[in-house]
Amino acid sequence: MTPDPILTLRHENAAYAVAFSSDGRLLASGSLDKSIKIWELPSGNEKFQLKGHGEAICTVVFQNGDSTLLSASLDKTLRTWDLASGTLKSTMSGHAAYLTCMAPSPKNTIAVSGAHDKDLILWDLATARQVATLRGHSDIVSSVAFSPDGKFVASGGHDFLIRIWDIASQTQVREIGPLPKPIQGVAFSPDGANIATAEESPVIRLWNFASGKLERTFEEHKGYVKTLAFSPSGRHLASGGSDSVVLIREVSSGRSVHILQGHRNTIYGLAWSSDQSRLASAAFDRTVCVWDTRLGS
């Protein structure tokens, strides 16, 4: 089934990041044009922009009951923004090269970022201070994810490895791989039982987190996969990449239930609404699309 997007929102340059507010009434998107746009839903009207980052925005996350937005940028900083006033609250800097990925912990108390400097940095979001630097990757860190219980971080790198870090001890406890290609994306299933990984190929791998064993592979994309997102229920896994297509598959069967075609370039970011009725995709074609994921389901 190939529904059209219900909204197509535009940036002046490639869109890298997207997130829904918890109530589904706002959408945030970040772009290579250095702006963060806040959109009203369901209208798709642009509410305002947050400007200040000096480079592309790679991740955006709503926080604190949607009163705050946390953003990460290639400019090596994380920033928090007050959404009521649209003003900058704090800036966190510490990386020595392009910051390419960031994820907050489930309770939004800390965040982890990965960068071209090969490091991961843990941040205390309350104080906006660096907590620890996690070193181990031998090449660019391209993706990070917190486990749902907040105890672990998974990071994927251009060193072909997925590394698992224990947050309490701030040490690497395990690694998965090496995989055949540089890692592009990692995502925990909401129950914490699985990690999905994307590499610079059409292959998506589903790993058992406890055992580290490969459970299954999905190979349906026609280009490399760049981004992954489990639905809040964990039943579905959305993926997007260089073939410009978003696939939503049922994890249990591996069957694709939605093939979302509307983008014209690589998809860099995916986000589900909390009620799972919407999926947003950010792409290099300068657009953010919002899809109705209930169609045909």
Binding site: A14, L32, L74, S142, R264
Partner: peptide
């Protein structure tokens, strides 16, 4: 190339 889009991302643009 990354992180500013691959050669091919930019070419498609």
């Amino acid at each position: 190339g990354q992180p500013h889009g691959t050669n091919f991302d930019n070419a498609r643009d």
